[in-house]
Amino acid sequence: MTPSDALEVLSNHLVPMAMTRAQIWVAAMATLAIFSYVWRENPVFRLAEYVFVALATANGVVMVYDSYLKPFFVLDVGQQGRYALLIPFAVGLLIYARSIRGLGWLSRLPMSLWVGYGAGYVLAWSPQPLFVQLRDTFVRFYQTYPDGPLAGRFWPGGTVNSVLFFVGVITTLMYFFFTVERRGPAMRWSSAVGRWTIMLALGAAFGTAVQGRMSLLIGRIQFLLGTWLGWLR
């Protein structure tokens, strides 16, 4: 098989995995069961929902076991004898103490560890990307054409965009000042401009959200009509 043949394979299968006919039928039934909800809530949907929750939860357990717990017990503890590692494992197990009367507070130990570690991670690792964001807001207003016949010359469009971008960021930030009363024309206008920027941003976000949801629905319809029924080329 040549590389281009392989890409042909890549582009032609409408389902991610090479599924057998039986699998495709089961998958189609599952798909229809969920779609039936659009009409109304019904027993078939309900069944599919419960099966889904069950399978997803079980899959998570199996994955953690295969990829973490088994190697941990077999390799780390069993072969290399790193018994000390059983201590943090036991701390994690304390989470189950919540349902034991009188010992419920022990479950606070892993919880406080997770919360504290999470907070530490925020303090340690989130500032750097934030600072890069800040730095990137130091825009240069004098823009030149990056390429093309006019490269290097003054670029009015780029300059206007830089100014708009800068104004957008700082007014959005000002909108979120909690202790500054919005009195006086300057404060009122800037927080209004901030709100307009936010609205444009949210509108754009809505647009891409529609895009994403439609893609997912198209994917399922392609599966039903193409893979299952074979109506699409």
Binding site: T137, F138, V139, I170
Partner: peptide, 12 residues
């Protein structure tokens, strides 16, 4: 906020 304003002025 002040940092952004100063930074932008300096950057320009």
């Amino acid at each position: 906020f002040a940092l952004i304003i100063v930074g932008t002025v300096v950057e320009n």
